[in-house]
């Protein structure tokens, strides 16, 4: 099929960008979206033009690297799907497709469709861990964890850190991302020791990074490619309130 792409092009962080239109021809419906982009890039290269930079790596929906805002939605029109797992059979011949980078003050554009998500790293560094050194830990079966809790913690832990939640949110809020880690570790007995400091520090860092507040629109969870639920956000809030009310941190 033949398509018209409107793609955000931006030379680097400090340059202004604009949407540029590219026709692409002969796209197979079995191609993935990124393979379609590969085809376009090969065309551009043959013409001696700069190919479009976009983040991608595993192309199996797990690394969280790919991050395109396609036709007005993060990761495109299919729910529960990363861009790399989106296939062209979901588009029609003759379609015009707009492709933009994630938009957030906390995610500045490096180039074209590549954004800087290091804000996420700093939030994780603020407390997204359990403080155990290598070695000297108890036997894995020493602490039984009810299956229901282990499963719930796992659901939260599947976050791939792609940033679609921020991209989808009208406030560019990172609450879903932050809450996934907070609630995973708050649910597990191993994480209880640090639960208060963890939520306090991670929320503080989230605010420092310049993400917006959560308005409970639910857009983040609806667009999350791995189905992280709003329940986590609510859990973060109760953790936060509890921590603020009872922790010793002044």
């Amino acid at each position: 099929m033949d398509l018209t792409l409107k793609v955000w092009r931006q030379k680097d962080k400090n340059s202004p960008g604009q949407m540029v239109t590219y026709p692409v021809k002969g796209i197979s419906p079995d191609m993935s979206f990124l393979e379609m982009m590969d085809v376009l890039n090969e065309d551009l290269l043959r013409k001696g033009e700069d190919p479009i930079a976009f983040d991608h790596d595993c192309r199996e929906g797990i690394c969280g690297m790919c991050s395109l805002y396609i036709n007005g939605r993060p990761h495109g029109p299919e729910r529960g799907t990363t861009t790399c797992q989106l296939h062209m059979r979901h588009f029609k011949d003759g379609d015009t497709i707009t492709i933009e980078p994630w938009r957030a003050a906390a995610f500045p554009v490096h180039k074209d469709l590549v954004v800087d998500r290091s804000a996420f790293e700093r939030i994780q560094q603020a407390g997204g861990y359990i403080s155990v050194n290598t070695g000297g830990v108890p036997d894995a079966n020493a602490i039984p964890i009810p299956k229901s809790i282990a499963d719930k913690a796992f659901d939260a832990a599947t976050c791939i850190g792609c940033g679609a939640c921020v991209a989808a949110c009208k406030n560019a809020s990172a609450m879903l991302f932050v809450s996934a880690k907070v609630s995973q570790l708050a649910m597990l007995p191993q994480g209880k020791a640090e639960r208060k400091t963890r939520v306090e520090n991670m929320v503080a860092q989230m605010d420092i990074e310049g993400f917006g507040a959560c308005s409970n629109t639910g857009a983040c969870a609806a667009e999350c490619p791995v189905g992280i639920s709003m329940e986590n956000i609510n859990m973060l809030r109760s953790e936060y309130l509890y921590a603020k009310a009872t922790s010793e941190n002044i």
Binding site: W8, G72, R73, E100, A219
Partner: peptide, 9 residues
């Protein structure tokens, strides 16, 4: 440039 929030909220 193109956004469809009605799809998710």
């Amino acid at each position: 440039a193109n956004s469809h929030p009605e799809e998710n909220s």
